[in-house]
């Protein structure tokens, strides 16, 4: 269970000291009803296509994941050894719920799934991710995405 007060002291201290910025403003973007939204997944699990470059450090870079990717082609090279990977090994949806999103489209709960999804290396200092995130926003607009679903690890 991911509660700091229930973790071993070594892990609790590690997580408690990760950079955690605060912001003076609270942006808020409205959009159409969920049934019309186009949803992109944005993961911080260090996921990428099997043939893509592994994540090597904390530089704030990201990888592009095509919307038609299949489970066998998605791998993970997140740096940390402090989270469970066996769930992902058994079922990619526990970390990258693309099958579930596709089902929600078929049910009409959401409008569509984006043509591309993205993954960062979590635990990176947020300041190092800012410029990548702002560039990514342009790509999301280009893909007509009006709902970014962020999934941590």
């Amino acid at each position: 269970m991911a509660r700091l007060d229930q973790m071993a002291e070594s892990m609790r201290a590690h997580l408690a000291h990760l950079p955690c910025p605060t912001f003076a403003d609270h942006p808020w973007v409205e959009g159409p009803p969920l049934s019309q939204r186009r949803v992109a997944l944005i993961s911080t699990a260090g996921l990428h296509r099997r043939g893509d470059r592994p994540f090597e450090g904390l530089s704030g870079d990201y990888r592009v994941i095509p919307g038609d990717i299949e489970a066998g082609d998605l791998v993970m090279t997140h740096l940390s050894t402090n989270f469970d990977r066996t769930g992902f090994q058994q079922d990619w949806n526990v970390m990258f719920p693309l099958d579930r999103l596709r089902e929600l489209v078929r049910e009409g709960f959401i409008g569509s799934v984006a043509a591309y999804h993205y993954s960062f290396m979590g635990a990176t200092d947020p300041a190092a991710m800012e410029s990548s995130a702002r560039n990514l926003a342009g790509l999301l607009h280009g893909d007509r995405v009006d709902a970014a679903l962020l999934v941590p690890v």
Binding site: F23, P27, D146, A147, A148, L150
Partner: peptide, 20 residues
């Protein structure tokens, strides 16, 4: 923070949180 940056750039975001 990623959500904040994206929302600032006019992309609506929602997220799962593991560390409250």
């Amino acid at each position: 923070a990623l959500a904040h940056y994206l929302e600032t750039e006019r992309v609506a975001t929602t997220q799962i949180s593991l560390i409250r």
